[in-house]
Nucleic acid binder design. Structure first.
Ligand code: NAD
Ligand code: NAD
Lengths: 230, 230
DNA sequence: CCGACCTTGTTCTCTTGTTCACAAAGTGCC
DNA sequence: GGCACTTTGTGAACAAGAGAACAAGGTCGG
């Protein structure tokens, strides 16, 4: 009779999308929303929305839909957004600086609490209201500021070491922007954002479409014959 | 006897990781690599590597492994990396500027060919070697420069419109950084990078782990009581 | 030239995720 | 109060992906 609290990974990744959508409609004064409408706005299938929401043990009202406010509360609770998650950005270069300047994080419960670099000429300088600290100060910063999430914005070479240090300092959640394979022990969670990967995937599909077009033009009868075989 | 050229999405997303790994080992002078070793370096399962590579129709040599150079050629061809894919960055703000400054794109076949903004005070100014052009110039730029990929780095509000314009101008591949649901017609491909989503997913697992710890420590009856209270 | 050894390519099974379809449940009109 | 209508929640079918296991194929030492 165990609690069925196990939320599938795929669902977890969609909850933030629903959350944002709900905040949008809430701002427009909408108080109730159907799975159909939410699905449309979130760009997914309605059945998927209902199933996803059902994992929250969420109570929609049949014949009516879901109460937007209530859904937002449930969802925030489930995602752990009832508290702040102080973020440390490691590597204040091009990208790290842009992230540090970005206001969108603090707004949503992810305040940038520390900037960290290894370059002695950067350490000690002030950027975006924060004094840049040295990587060696990490454990102290985690203690002091309760850093919960580390963002790696260093070159690929340093990424694994930074991750190791973050984990050693007690940071269990890491977001990696460096184009490198980084591994963390099981008790930690690592997610990656890989620009080059995204572009290469786009080029794959871009290319395939071009080929597809050419094929579609030239193939004609042969194509049908070929496909029917399958 | 149909060509089994349909590569699964999940595989496509891993090919860039293999590619990068192979480039790394190639730089170290390695000429042959086993699926086992490649898997280790790429952080995946060896069987998965073999299956993925088999979609390339790739010829490994049993008893030996894969020829690194050959694999790189095949993989680049499959991913469409034998040509350049000129990129246009739309929205030269915080993030757009960082992306424009980043050297890592041009290196790998994705030269930044155009910077685009809608802000009249930015249009005409020079940034990182490019004159910032107006969104209205998009069709001309696509013709002139052969823009193949559009990167959306505008605020969320403008994202869908920018996407529509990109598609209308003939850009079939789009990478969206704005936290908004953007849809494109079927002939186009859109991928998104969603920072807030990544952080929220991290907070979900971060929270769950803390709870998990508490549960593991106290388990049994007490835990149930505690949860019911929350 | 042969046999021990290694590594691939692929088949099969299991798990995870998606979608459909429909009964159950509630609303609000009349 | 009853009935037609809406929308949820979920069971079941289907699709995609992961991983284990192993036969087939090839290498290389002797
Ligand atoms: N800039 C972009 O738009 C962009 C886009 C995609 C990916 N990336 C990736 O993000 C990462 C950062 O890119 P960038 O352009 O900001 O690079 P950058 O060279 O401008 O900045 C890197 C910063 O990290 C610091 N650093 C280096 N090693 C460190 C270490 N071990 N510990 C702490 N700090 C360290 C450096 O001092 C520097 O300040 C790179 O891996 C890059 O591939 C950047
Ligand atoms: N900066 C970051 O680190 C960061 C991180 C995550 C996500 N994002 C997202 O990336 C997007 C850009 O962020 P930013 O910090 O660079 O914002 P920004 O406000 O600094 O820059 C936005 C730029 O887009 C331009 N713009 C606005 N509407 C436009 C339109 N319709 N067409 C063309 N250009 C237009 C503006 O003139 C401005 O130059 C936002 O959606 C943000 O949420 C940014």
């Amino acid at each position: 009779m165990e609690r069925q609290r196990r939320i599938p990974e795929a669902t977890v990744a969609r909850l933030p999308v629903y959350l944002r959508t709900l905040l949008d409609v809430q701002a427009d004064g909408v108080t109730t929303i159907s799975s159909e409408r939410l699905a449309e706005l979130a760009g997914v299938n309605a059945a998927k929305v209902r199933k996803d929401l059902s994992y929250l043990g969420s109570f929609g009202t049949r014949g009516v839909g879901y109460d937007v406010d209530h859904l937002l509360v449930q969802m925030s609770r489930e995602l752990g957004l009832t508290r702040d998650w102080p973020v440390a950005i490691v590597g204040v270069g091009n990208l790290g600086a842009a992230l540090a300047n970005y206001g969108g994080f603090g707004d949503r419960g992810f305040p940038v609490a520390a900037l960290i670099d290894a370059d002695p000429t950067k350490v000690g300088t002030i950027f975006g209201g924060h004094t840049i600290r040295h990587l060696d100060d990490l454990p102290a910063l985690v203690d002091e500021l309760g850093i919960a999430i580390g963002i790696i914005a260093t070159p690929a070479v340093g990424a694994q070491e930074v991750a190791d240090r973050l984990v050693a300092a007690g940071v269990k959640s890491i977001l990696n922007f460096a184009p490198a394979v980084v591994t963390v022990p099981e008790q930690a969670t690592l997610r990656k954002v890989d620009l080059a990967l995204e572009l290469q995937v786009l080029s794959f599909y871009g290319q395939r479409d071009s080929i597809g077009l050419a094929l579609r033009e030239e193939l004609g009868v042969a194509a049908a014959a070929k496909n029917s075989g399958a």
